[in-house]
Design a protein around this nucleic acid. Structure first.
Length: 509
RNA sequence: GGGGGCAUAACUCAGUUGGUAGAGUAGUUGGCUUUUAACCAAUUUGUCCCAGGUUCAAGUCCUGGUGCCCUCACCA
């Protein structure tokens, strides 16, 4: 591990210590006299610069990481970076003490410093803090990336996000906006009197979606557990219990392939509202997407909301288009999805074969046609609604035609971003659908009937609408990031070789 | 899992027909009181991803492996 630390910088560190300075002081502020008011207030660079003209002549204290340096012997300009941006520092030999000025020698790019001084413009007019006091707050032992190109290698950027974040400003903006988007969506829920809840991540029976789970084991209970693939069944238990509007920002885990749109763990915003239904969920989804788009900065000068994703422009003003599944099927596949003969013809044509004789297998094949021929045509934003009931075990069939179920999927930018149901609340029908699912022997589908969930339904789930939104994919579209990895702080990567340090202590039980 | 591409200094990248390793940034030393990719001079740093093979000679060609990217498959 020794080569993690740059030898030249270790020397500087020793020099710094020899001069009596602490290279890692606990307190960031300059020392203040005992009994005096707490030290100077820390301010963000962007806030200072925003009202710089009013504040010329004011003495202030700034903290940050030095990422640029232009030195002149008796004067140096530093680029000080913080969460909000950059502010220029000028250290002049005749303004600081000899000790402070000597510290410049021990400072490298990447170090954190504090500077106290007066704000005023330079000769070329840039508002600059002219330091009167200066200290090093943290010595960096590794070089920052190349200052012009930043960190470019996509693997290194994901693996060392802590470097990517300070080296590439747009990366920091992406994640600050991600935070703002989530916060805006939370506010929509709170305004609609939803309560945020936390349900278990460790599930004894995995359900609520079709996906392979991660498996783990609880030692004390000697019991296998699964990381959740969806929070759905727990959230609906809460509605049974009388928590009528709930949402969860849920990290879910699916043991499947990685791609530009898939990461083994991702964030799903799921919400349930009693006495609502799939149409109410459309309204709610519109509110959430609009709020998210505003937080992402999609508002144009004329007041419309627009996002550009993969060089395609999307208008995000509500209401969004609503398209019946059967109608979209008719339009893009070319036949009525309930016309078995015509559909069978189309299946042959597109090399789709039902995997068995069951209704479920048939409709799964029908849906494969939908995915292949319709989904790519759906640019969005569009709600596709009334899905085949056979492939929707958790959605309530339509009263007037049980072939179809109260469900929508929301498409935007060529991706499925949300999925919602009029929740199935008939416990007997739910049990039957669960049993059919298990019998279907699909190794990737649910392998056990969640009898406790059926029991919960038998206590009564009021008519309820529920929806899950893929937050990461929504952010991809709103911020125009091509890969899900670009909107995840730490996407899944293979283990880096040579970076594990074995514990030297032997475990003796 | 199939196909294609890439892997060279801490970072960004060159490297010709196979001839013994380069630039810029960062670092170090010196100079400079208004720069902003500052400038000037000097200077340090390499498991050329790994393991074999061909060859007098391999960063370069071949085989296998590893990692990453793209793409297809899988994944409602």
């Amino acid at each position: 591990m020794a080569d993690l630390f740059h030898p030249d910088r270790l020397q500087k560190l020793e020099d710094l210590k020899a001069s009596g300075a602490d290279p890692y002081p606990a307190q960031a502020n300059f020392p203040v006299e005992e009994g005096a008011a707490a030290g100077p207030v820390r301010e963000f660079a962007a806030d200072i610069l925003a009202e710089a003209e009013k504040r010329v002549g004011e003495t202030m204290t700034v903290f940050g990481r030095v990422l640029g340096r232009r030195g002149y012997g008796k004067l140096a300009f530093l680029d000080l970076h913080d969460q909000t941006g950059r502010i220029q520092i000028c250290l002049q030999k005749d303004l600081v003490s000899a000790e402070d000025f000597a510290l410049l020698k021990q400072m490298n790019l990447g170090d954190f410093i504090a500077v106290q001084g007066e704000l005023r413009p330079t000769k070329v007019g840039e508002q600059t803090v002219f330091g009167e006091r200066f200290r090093i707050l943290t010595k960096a032992l590794e070089n920052p990336p190349e200052k012009f190109h930043g960190l470019a290698d996509s693997e290194l950027r994901a693996r060392m996000r802590y470097v990517d974040l300070f080296a590439n400003q747009e990366v920091r903006e992406t994640f600050l906006k991600r935070s703002a988007i989530l916060q805006a969506m939370r506010q929509v829920f709170l305004d609609c009197r939803y309560s945020e809840v936390d349900t278990p991540v460790l599930h004894q029976i995995y359900g609520g979606a079709n996906a392979r789970p991660f498996t783990t084991h609880h030692n004390a209970l000697d019991m296998d557990l699964f990381l959740r693939i969806a929070p759905e069944l727990y959230l609906k238990r809460l509605v049974v219990g009388g928590m009528e509007r709930v949402f969860e920002v849920a990290r879910v885990f699916r043991n499947e392939g990685l791609s530009m749109r898939h990461n083994p763990e991702f964030t799903m915003i799921e919400f349930y509202e009693a006495y609502s239904d799939v149409y109410g969920m459309m309204d709610m989804t519109e509110k959430l997407v609009v709020a998210a788009a505003k937080a992402a900065g999609c508002t144009q000068e004329d007041g419309t909301l627009k996002a550009t994703f993969r060089e395609e422009e999307f208008v995000l003003d509500a209401p969004f288009q609503r398209l019946r599944y059967a109608d979209s099927f008719q339009e893009f596949v070319g036949c009525d999805p309930t016309d078995r003969e015509a559909v069978a013809e189309k299946m042959k044509e597109h090399h789709v074969t039902p995997d068995g004789d069951s209704e479920y297998a048939w409709w799964k094949a029908v849906n494969a046609l939908f995915e292949d021929l319709v989904e790519p045509k759906l640019r969005g934003p569009v709600f596709v609604y009334d899905y085949p009931a056979a492939i929707c075990p958790l959605a309530k069939p339509l009263a007037d035609d049980p072939t179809w179920a109260g469900r929508f999927e929301f498409f935007l930018g060529g991706m499925e971003l949300a999925n919602a149901f009029s929740e199935l609340n008939d416990p007997q029908m739910q049990l039957k659908k669960f049993e059919e699912q298990v019998e279907d022997k699909d190794p990737e589908s649910v392998n056990q009937v969640d009898m406790d969930y059926v029991r919960a339904l038998s206590y009564g789930l009021p008519p309820t609408g529920g929806c899950g939104i893929g937050l990461d994919r929504l952010i991809m579209v709103l911020l125009n990031r091509n890969s899900i990895r670009d909107v995840l702080l730490f996407p899944q990567l293979r283990a880096e070789t040579g970076m594990q340090v074995e514990a030297k202590v032997e475990t003796d039980v």
